[in-house]
């Protein structure tokens, strides 16, 4: 079916009207780029790099969350709506665990932070991963052969459930998240600086993403994942344990989301029970933008959405930014459903 739709679409795109629509789309993008360039030029270098640093840091967080969406979609073709809330859960759990690791704001700083933070990351990622594996086990696995709508609806239900639990736990307030990262600016030449905080966020995110890519490309489990994503039945015939592989995918995706939750907290110093819904949507947009099912695509999409977001915030009106991001989502789906890097849409 999907194959057929793809081909139907391929034939549609080649018609003259469709290429006209594509041209109009390109023109809109070009105008937007020119308008942006003009404003950036007027704004000066310092402001630009500040905005860019913010956008890259934000994009790195989007990318980490987007990876979970893209991996799960790649393997079982499910939009795991609960994923965004697993991300918030990461922030909530780490917040609760901080005293355990002796992370008290103002009493600890510098190099002394490294070990406790590392511990916090490991434990939080583990808890989030187990929660997500549990969600898959309870809410998605029993419906694997049900009509497609069914697991999508339980995914929305799980999302509401997680948000509800966090809401009951800590209330619908903006919670303060301790500020451990240095607020210094790093000079990058020409009198222009970039926030150290943003650099740290980007470095951590890149380390996590590189290890994930290595894992998926090199390890046996990673190969099993790719095989399962391509053809579940064939993978099963080759002796791959499908259930274990799918669980592992949920595990890894949620571990990254949990880490993203901590990074989010450390970067913005504030978190709220319902943040995951919006953030999850942005991350999903990023995954679609890069090409759903494609791991480097999700990373690229995340960075781009982050930068677009902060440029829109920084140079245009804040209140239209969200409209812009969702408009991008719709336009990508309509005009290029395979995304930027999506050579292959999972066809099943």
């Amino acid at each position: 079916m999907a194959a057929m739709v793809q081909r139907l679409r391929a034939s549609v795109i080649s018609t003259p009207t469709a290429s006209l629509i594509n041209l109009v789309g390109l023109a809109i993008v070009a105008v937007a780029l020119v308008a942006t360039a003009q404003r950036v030029y007027q704004g000066g270098a310092t402001y630009f790099f500040q905005t860019l640093g913010f956008g890259l840091a934000q994009g790195a967080i989007f990318a980490l969350v987007a990876l979970g969406y893209t991996m799960v979609y790649g393997i079982i073709e499910l939009i795991n709506f609960a994923h965004g809330d697993v991300f918030t859960l990461g922030a909530f759990i780490s917040l609760a665990l901080m005293p355990v690791f002796g992370l008290n704001e103002g009493r600890i700083s510098g190099a002394a932070l490294i070990l406790p933070l590392l511990g916090l990351f490991v434990v939080t990622m583990l808890i989030c991963a187990l929660v997500n594996v549990g969600i898959e086990r309870v809410a998605y696995r029993p419906l694997r052969h049900a009509p497609r709508l069914a697991p999508l609806i339980t995914a929305i239900g799980m999302s509401a459930l997680l948000e509800g639990v966090m809401n009951v736990w800590r209330g619908p307030f903006n919670l303060h998240y301790p500020d451990f990262l240095p607020s210094t600016q790093i000079p990058i030449g020409g009198g222009v600086t970039i926030a150290a905080k943003a650099v740290m966020v980007i470095v951590v995110a890149v380390v996590l993403m590189v290890s994930l890519t290595l894992f998926v490309n090199r390890s046996k489990l990673g190969k099993a994942m790719r095989a399962t994503a391509q053809d579940r039945d064939a993978a099963q015939l080759m002796g791959i344990d499908i259930n274990r592989t799918i669980s592992a995918t949920f595990f890894i995706g949620a571990a990254l989301a949990g880490a993203a939750g901590i990074i989010y907290g450390l970067y913005y110093n504030s978190v709220q029970a319902f943040d995951g819904f919006q953030y999850g949507l942005y991350a999903f947009t990023a995954a679609v933008f890069g090409g759903i099912g494609n791991i480097p695509g999700a990373a690229l999409g995340g960075i781009l959405i982050g930068v677009i977001y902060s440029i829109s915030d920084g140079y245009f009106t804040v209140s239209w930014t969200q409209v812009l991001v969702f408009a991008i989502l719709i336009f990508v789906l309509v005009f290029r459903p395979t995304g930027l890097l999506g050579m292959r849409v999972p066809e099943k």
Binding site: A146, A150, I153, T154, I156, G157, S159, L161, N167, P172
Partner: peptide, 16 residues
């Protein structure tokens, strides 16, 4: 505050 919990339980519970 439990409104969303109830939502979630209804959606998941009914589907399962």
């Amino acid at each position: 505050r439990s409104k969303y919990v109830i939502f979630g339980l209804i959606l998941v519970g009914i589907m399962l």
